[in-house]
Design a protein around this nucleic acid. Structure first.
Lengths: 154, 154
DNA sequence: CTTGACCTTCCCATGGTAGGAAGGTTCATC
DNA sequence: GATGAACCTTCCTACCATGGGAAGGTCAAG
């Protein structure tokens, strides 16, 4: 029997309900690469290691990884996820703070969406006027090449 | 008719209708940084230089830069712009080729848009159920932390 | 000749993800 | 107890478009 906090062997860790990084990746949908990356960025705490220096993850570590995965699927940036994780772990948070982050993010998504929609509309309009045949005449290129109004960026 | 390809002085170049990189940037909305970058990437040909090694741009160079700027505003990638520029310069292109690129890009924009819309919808739904008050109970965090279905990536 | 605006090149950073090389660990099977 | 596969380790590179900044050269005007 090994003394308390000394690094353990992989098999033993598994027996105690720990998971290797590959298994954690499978179970959470976050690649092993990204788990290491998040650790190096400080988004998640440094994982415990076995004697062979393998990372091991507990069920609650997996829980956090799933949280991250889900938040990324919703388009939150790593910084935002850092905040969300903080609130998640803080039992005394006010849901108002969480909602504020969510609402801000919704607004950001809306901005992105309407930006893309405006591109799409312009391009669809151009394409609609293009014959799309073997002739060289093309309103799309004509438009792209035209000297348009204000060239200066915001 | 200008005698040779010998580099000229800046003042002389300006007199002949050439523009410095800073001026070109102002006039096209493409920053000087990006103009150099595009040149290094081969998107635009190497600029002519003065004896002092300053880049100079002709009116038609500016035209191409505006083309690039406009295409980027429409969300085309550099690779796509490379193709578009090729077609633009080729007087014998078929407008069909241009249209195909445009249509493909519209489809890509549509995919992005609906991806963002789906994120937005999920998040708005979560936010709608969150009281947003001083209490810690929060459906947004609850959802993020919940073990959802299939974690494996495509 | 000096000043200051403008230019040059070169390096570094962003953000999120992935690929790969070179080498060590674990574990099951012979 | 050796071998080989599967897995892990660290470290470096790349993507894409953009921008920041340093160190130094060029140019026009005073």
């Amino acid at each position: 029997m090994r003394a308390a906090r000394a690094p353990v062997e992989l098999a033993e860790a598994k027996g105690r309900g720990y998971y290797s990084i590959g298994r954690a990746a499978e179970l959470t949908g976050v690649t092993a690469k990204m788990i290491r990356h998040y650790e190096s960025q400080g988004l998640i705490p440094k994982a415990n290691r076995t004697v062979g220096d393998y990372r091991v993850y507990s069920a609650s570590d997996l829980h956090a990884l799933r949280f991250i995965r889900r938040a990324r699927d919703l388009g939150f940036s790593i910084k935002e996820i850092e905040s969300l994780l903080g609130l998640w772990r803080n039992q005394r948070r006010a849901s108002e703070q969480v909602k504020r982050l969510a609402v801000q993010h919704i607004a950001a998504l809306d901005r992105k969406i309407s930006e893309l929609q405006s591109m799409r509309a312009t391009l669809a309009d151009l394409a609609a006027h293009c014959q799309g045949d073997e002739r060289p005449q093309c309103p799309i290129l004509d438009d792209l090449g035209r000297c348009s109004g204000d060239q200066r960026r915001k």
